[in-house]
């Protein structure tokens, strides 16, 4: 056998594992690829935000059309999902930069900080929703005002 055919035989017999379609990736590997996926999703989000601002620059009609598209119950949920993806990417970005400094590069630490990143993303999304949801002081004010109106009538 020539060296060339030898190489082909070896190549054909080479195992394919971990084969991505059947192999259940460990948590750290899932988080690794999701940093990339969230980066791409966020880039898409950036384009949407850009269209919002450009529409406002074009004038009231363009703005109103855009707002009627992005202010529905479903898109409100999409915005919440966007915030989660952003905070996940941010938390994971911190993790990347600590690794660059040589901090936390053991498997045990990576699992621990990975869990922290997910907790951070959920907590920050909840916080931003709570801060902006009009469901705390504003609603209370409306109820008070409403009560006031009824009393004077």
């Amino acid at each position: 056998m020539t060296e060339e055919t030898n190489k082909i035989v070896i190549k054909a017999k080479r195992p394919l594992s971990p084969h991505l379609q059947v192999y259940d990736l460990p948590m750290t590997a899932k988080m690794s690829i999701s940093h990339r996926i969230t980066g791409v999703i966020l880039t898409g989000g950036l384009v949407l935000l850009s269209i919002w601002v450009i529409a406002a620059g074009l004038g009231e009609n363009a703005y109103n059309t855009m707002m009627s598209l992005i202010d529905t119950p479903i898109t409100r949920f999409v915005f919440l999902a966007w915030a989660f993806v952003l905070f996940y990417h941010m938390g994971n970005g911190f993790r990347h930069m600590f690794w660059d400094l040589g901090i936390g590069i053991t498997e045990k630490a990576a699992v621990k900080t990975g869990t922290l990143v997910i907790i951070f993303a959920v907590a920050m999304t909840a916080l931003i929703w709570w801060l902006t949801c009009d469901c705390t002081t504003d609603t209370a004010n409306i109820i008070v005002l409403d009560g006031g109106v009824h009393e004077t009538e």
Partner: peptide, 22 residues
């Protein structure tokens, strides 16, 4: 980090506001 925090907070506050408000 600070810019994104400001942007997310603003986007959530600006959802559904009128042209003049925006």
């Amino acid at each position: 980090i600070p810019l994104v925090l400001w942007a997310v907070y603003s986007v959530f506050n600006l959802q559904g506001v009128s042209y003049l408000e925006f």
